[in-house]
């Protein structure tokens, strides 16, 4: 080694040296970047948290006209078994007249089952209207007592400060009477 070192002298084989320098820097940079990933990813939801990211809900005990509140990803999910009157009332509305225009059909998979996230789109309160004695607002749906937003029987905003309808979470029917949310 030392013999070549002496004969080569300064600037002897600069192209080889440069190539090795670039390779070292490139590999080092790539390696460091890849090593960062496990640390960042560890802060993403863990497997046990992800396992709870979708829940199954059995709808069979919910009588017509009743509602239940399920918890999904830490948020209340309103599930109402709507009566034919509820559905009719919702569909009688002219869609284009709504603040957040959306047809009733676009908010449900099965007409009688309304599933949505029960968080007022105004400032995040949980609206009333799930329990039999609750105020249901002017449109027989839900009423947010914080700032007076009224939602109809399809969960659409009709009156008050909230800008949007109550959002519908992703869900599908596993069979006639059970759904998976998320």
């Amino acid at each position: 080694m030392s013999e070549t070192a002496h004969s080569a002298g300064t600037g002897g084989d600069t192209s080889r040296r440069d190539m090795l320098l670039y390779a070292s820097v490139a590999l080092g940079t790539v390696g460091t970047a890849l090593a960062v990933w496990p640390f960042l990813d560890s802060m993403n939801p863990a497997k046990d948290v992800l396992a709870l990211a979708s829940i199954e809900v059995d709808l069979s005990p919910i009588q017509e006209g009743q509602a239940i509140t399920a918890v999904w990803r830490g948020k209340p999910v309103f599930i109402r078994h709507r009566t034919p009157a509820d559905i009719e009332q919702s569909r009688a509305v002219e869609v284009s007249s709504l603040r957040d225009p959306q047809a009733d059909e676009d908010r449900v998979i099965k007409d009688q089952w309304l599933v949505m996230i029960g968080i007022c789109t105004h400032l995040g309160c949980v609206p009333k209207g799930q329990k039999p004695g609750d105020p249901k607002g002017d449109y027989n749906g839900w009423f947010c007592v914080c700032h007076g937003s009224h939602y109809d029987t399809a969960g659409r905003i009709r009156k008050g400060p909230a800008p949007l309808n109550l959002p519908v979470p992703p869900y599908d029917f596993l069979d006639e009477t059970s759904i998976r949310i998320g």
Binding site: T4, L20, L21, A23, G31
Partner: peptide
């Protein structure tokens, strides 16, 4: 495997670099 390649390249570069220093 990556660390073998990285260390190999670094060692080769070190030898090139130190040629003049000896």
């Amino acid at each position: 495997l990556f660390l073998i390649v990285l260390t190999g390249v670094l060692f080769a570069y070190k030898r090139e670099l130190w040629k003049d220093a000896h």
